[in-house]
Design a protein around this nucleic acid. Structure first.
Lengths: 128, 128
DNA sequence: AAGTGCTATATGTACTCTACATATAGGAGA
DNA sequence: TCTCCTATATGTAGAGTACATATAGCACTT
């Protein structure tokens, strides 16, 4: 059988997880939200905070976090500064810009709409 | 500004649409559902049926439909047969297999879960 | 001094999904 | 013949991601 699972690791053990792995990770909106609520301010911290966040149950890759943050900065949705490491290496600390907050609000509207559509679709399927 | 929009066409005119375009199209479950409910049986028909279906408001590309159907067949979730064209070229007609129906039910569970998470997340953002 | 482990950022590579473009072909009607 | 609608298919490129790897600071142990 062809590999249906973009993200490997599951040896077809859990079909639910295998399907869920095909959904977008939505790292961008979660990162923006965590910044907006002061729950995380630099890459390594997001790595832990995002896992707790239930938008996806898959483990988020650190590479994705770091690249997402850089992309957000390139778009002016966040800004960064280096902070000396407190008992460890230096951190690149991020702050949300006004544009970033606006962007998060847009994400919220889109995700609400999409979420309702998904629930509705699931209900249609359940009636089969 | 970097191109945030994987699917082009919007000239930054509608930021909502631009964000929504970053969401997965979820063509696979919709195709399975349309097959299960006898709403479509071949590629060109899915092309129209999928547009009406509100899981995504973006226009679905025909290439995606055809490749999705072939992939589903490679996995044994659907089977196909050629049917002579009624006033037009021949059609490759698809049927859902039992495995395909099972797969759709799994999709439904995953999407219900994900949908609720999205709505919840949107609500958290709205409280900002 | 060297080794281990945690913190922290970053890049290289490969794969999937998708957008957009293009190719092919049958049939109907002008 | 030309054009249009129906119908399937492939080529290519970009985005998002998984997995692997490289780097370095600091603390603690041996």
């Amino acid at each position: 059988m062809r590999k249906r699972c973009r993200r490997g690791q599951q040896p077809a053990a859990d079909p639910m997880a295998s399907i869920a792995s095909n959904l977008s990770r939505l790292v961008e909106p979660v990162v923006l939200y965590l910044l907006a609520t002061d729950q995380a301010h630099y890459g390594y911290q997001f790595l832990e905070a995002v896992q707790d966040f239930a938008l996806t149950d898959a483990e988020i890759d650190s590479a994705v976090i770091y690249r997402t943050l850089r992309a957000l900065e390139a778009d002016g949705l966040v800004v960064s500064d280096w902070a000396p490491g407190a008992g460890g290496p230096a951190k690149r600390v991020y702050k949300l810009t006004p544009a970033g907050l606006t962007h998060l609000k847009l994400w919220a509207q889109v995700l609400d709409q999409r979420g309702r559509a998904l629930v509705y679709f699931a209900q249609l399927c359940a009636e089969l």
